[in-house]
Every structure is written in structure tokens, then in C-alpha cells.
Design a protein around this nucleic acid. Sequence first.
RNA 1: GCGCUCGUAGCUCAGCGGAUAGAGCAACGGACUUCUAAUCCGUCGGUCGCAGGUUCGAAUCCUGCCGGGCGCGCCA
Length: 548
Amino acid sequence: MNLEALLAGRLAAAFAAVAGETVDPVVRQSQHADFQSGAALALARRLGRPPREVAAEVADKSDLAGLASVEVSGPGFLNLAVDDAVLATAVDALDDDRLGVPPVARPERIVIDYSGPNAAKELQVGHLRSTIIGDALARLHAWLGHEVIRRNHLGDWGTQFGMLIEHMVDLGGDAAEHSLGDLTDFYRAARRKFDADDRFRTRSRLRVVALQSGDELTRSLWRRLVGQTESTFMDTYARLGVTLTPADFVGESFYQDQLESVLSELDEKGLLVESEGALCVFPAGFTGRDGEPLPLIVRKSDGGFGYAATDLAALRHRVRTLGATRLLYVVGAPQRTHFRMVFEVCRRAGWLPPEVTAEHIEFGSILGADGKMFRTRSGDNVTLAALLDEAVERASSPAVGIGAIKYADLSGDRRSDYVFDWDRMLASTGNTGPYLQYAYARIRSIFRQADAAEAGPVSLGAPAERRLALALLGFEPAVTAAAAHREPHRLAVYLHELAVAFTGFYESCPILRSAGPTRASRLTLADRTARTLAIGLSLLGIDLPEEM
RNA sequence: GCGCUCGUAGCUCAGCGGAUAGAGCAACGGACUUCUAAUCCGUCGGUCGCAGGUUCGAAUCCUGCCGGGCGCGCCA
């Protein structure tokens, strides 16, 4: 149920009659009424007539019978008050698992690239936002009826693997296996040797060559290393409630045998330019430090392929082979220029046809209390595993602790940086995970004391009941807006508003202590709130405890 | 230097072309023999960085300036 769309549809005819052309009534929520339309103000100028006069004529010609009442207000707004009976019936109808939201008419095949940690390392706080935001977007779009293909673009290839594999060889089979249990230590030990020992460095370089040329022993060690880290990633994803599966792990290594053809196709299109020994594409409109054209380096001067080549291959593969109609890259804002260049090059290469859209879903950084990048006191990166441990400890509940972290991340505009603050995110009041979970837990408590079958038709008496009904009907616009803008916080903020409306209702309208039709109606309102919170938070990837 | 981005209440943030700019925290004052008070109600608090411009109307769009962040060739 989308009241805004319903009202806009009715008003559109009146606007068209007055304007002589199609006018978007821009129906929105308002403090002055249930909804308002400000379209008459803009229209009045075009018609050269007084705004209030235009608004009055639109109101007069509007057929809102059985839906709402309208009046002209202020400089020329149309204030809309939805009939109580309409609200009540609409809330009654929210009893299915989609809350009346139909699947999209034209499903797209959307590849969402998110998380993307480096194999042989642990998941860090630096991966948190991509993982959480990407997963929320995946859930949202899938729920709306799109075909979502998740892609975890692991850093599982590159020169550092020579060093790591050589270190495995040095340790020998069992010791290596054991050592991989702590990847941070394993990586550091390899790094130390690499920095200190010339001979080890030489062996590492040779090992890279062996890996690239497909040496069987080297490959099997590499597979073990990557496999081990993938399983630790899965452990953390499971704790975080992230929907990535091993089948979604398609790392950089997957594209290695496609890089030569990326190069040759670019060459055929005449896009490839040699510069300082490297093979580059110079997309128009990108300049560097001295105003000189900025290159996207496809093949480095040493003959190796860089990350840009892999990104190009991945994009081409996702469109050409996977058949994606939309590509979402959930990657931090600092890589904006890089992605703009990649997209531009792919457009010119014909890999990104006009009907396919590629979007960089950028996000800001997580800051510590000092306003700088979030780190441990000693300046190290914080591992996700440690962060989750602390969350569970502080909240003494996995659902609450981890939900708090995720909600804190998803409740603000993703483009903004935010300060990581345990006290604020775990607060039981305010725009927080625990506040929403608490509202839900209170409803569950009610239904442990009442039979769900007692719920009956909604009738709206008290102002708080009406406010809650209106809030419940705001779900569809919120979900739609969150998906359209790829901004999960639009849904999060809505859910908080719903919880606030519910709490107000809960405080002023006794449910179990009421009787008859009132009790039946209030139980339905509570039930619909619980459903909406449950579905809404599930779309954000946040669990709801039955009790708190 | 060039480019991108952000600057809203003491703090953390919504709002991003419409009516007196909204929440939460903090501060202060109230509400628990009452369905979970992990809550609620009230008060206090803002020249929406500054200056111009466009517009009937600007926190919202444009330009300049100030301040913060990020990016600018072989790392991803």
C-alpha cells in the first residue's frame, strides 16, 4: 500500500485538467496534514495566476471521494487528510509477508560487488561498511524481486602470494596448517622474512612466477591458503549475518586468464597507448597533478597486470557472461576516480552498453573518537572478529550487540564518515538498533499473553493509533526510496519513526487491558508493527530477539 | 597546484526546491500498585560555514571565499 502514490494518482487528473498538461502532484508527508501537495505553487507561476486560486481549483476538481479530504492551506498548499476508514482498512490488509508491496514489474539482474577482503588476511574494520551496506542492498533488491548476484571480489592474487606460499613451504605441511589458524601472525611472519632476508625475497619472486605459470605444487599450496582464509571469512560473515556464500567468492584470480583478451580488445578498439613502458588507456576528462591526462594502467611496465586490468575484466565478464543489467560496486569513496575511469573505459570499449548501468556505491570512513581512522590504541587495524567479540560482550547478546553495530552503520547517509561510539550505538533510546529491537520485544511479549487470533478489524480512535496507522503505511515508500537511491538509511530512519510511533501508542493505548473491538484493533496494530519491524530489519540484515 | 567531497542545535545526525529547519544525546523538570520505565511527556537550545546570485520561495540549485577530508601513473 502506497498512500502517496494513491493520492498522487487521484490528484494528477485534477492537475491535468487545470494545467492542460501532466503535472506531478509531488505528494509528501507533512507536519500540517497527513500529506501535502505543493505542486500548485509551481504551476501557478506557469499559468500566471495566484497560487491559492490554482490550488483551490485543483482541490475542487479532485475526486478524492472515499479516500481523503483536501483543503487549501498557506500560500497554496493542498493539505490532504486520509479518511480513517481508509487507514484502518489498509492496516488490516498488511497481513502478508510482503506487507502489500508488490515485486517490481521489470526485474533486473543486478551484480553487487561488496566486502572484498584480501585472502591471507583477516577481515578488518575497513571491510565492515562495504560488507554491511552491500549485504543490505543485496537483501533489499532481492526482496523487491530483482535477481541479485553477489560478488565477493577477494584479493586472492598478486605478488604477495609468492611470499606467503614460500613461507608455507618453509614451515612444512602440518606447521603451515597450524600457523594459518592465526592469519595475522602468519602474514606478519612472512612479511618479516621478506623484509629481512634477501634469499627469501628471491625465492618469493620465483614462487610468484611458479604460481602464475601454473606449477601444480604451488597452486595447491595457494589453494590451501586461500581456502583457509575463505573459511575464516565465512565464520565472520555467519556471525555478522551476511548472506555471502562460498559460491559468491569470485576473487581476482578468477579473471587472470581473461586479462590478455582485455588487453587485445582494447588494442583492437585503438584505446591502448604505451606510456613510460606501461600499456594504458587515457579516458577523456581525467587529468592529474600537472593537468596532464590521467592513465588507467592496464599492464604495468614490468609486464604484469594491475588491479585496473582485473576490474575491467570483471566488469566485462559480469555484463557479457553473467548478463547483468546493473552493476553495483560497494567500495569506499577514495576510489571514486578509479571507478569513474574504469566505467568510462568500459563504455568506450563497448563492454558497458547504454542499457547497462554501473554505479559506484561509495561510503565514508569509520572514525575513532579522535576523529581519525578507527584503530586500536596501538594503532593497529581492528579485526572484525575482535569487534564482534566486544559488541557481544558489551551488549551481552549477539543479536543486540551485532545489530547495534550494523544499525549504526546503516542508519546514517552512507557517504558520510561516522564516529564509532559504543555508548551511542548501544543506547536503548534514540535512533539505535536496541531501541527498535526493544519495541519489537515488547510486542512479542504482548502476544505471549494474548492469542494472535484475538486480533480483529482496526478502528482508529486515539491520535496515537492514527499516527501509528499512518506510520505503518509508510513502509512501501521507504523501501522503494532506499532501493532507488541505494541508501539503506532511508529504510532505517523510517523504521525508527515507526518504532517511535509505536512506543507512543504503547504508552497511551493499553492493549491487553482493553476489551472487545478496541483490544482486537490494538492487537492488529501491534501485530502489523511487529511484522513491519521484522521485515524491515531483516532487509537491513539485523536480527530481532524475542525478549530483551 | 588541479579535481572530488563535506561544513545544519554544545555533541551525533536527519532533512537536499516549498509553509514557523527536525530527531537522539547532553542539561533541566515531570510520569512506574498500570501490557518489558532498556520507555514516555515537557522545557531549554540553530544568522543551516561566510558572501553573492537564480527563484514567487533556497539548508536544499549556481558562483566565489574560508575550513576539514580524500584523490591525482605502475598498491587495491
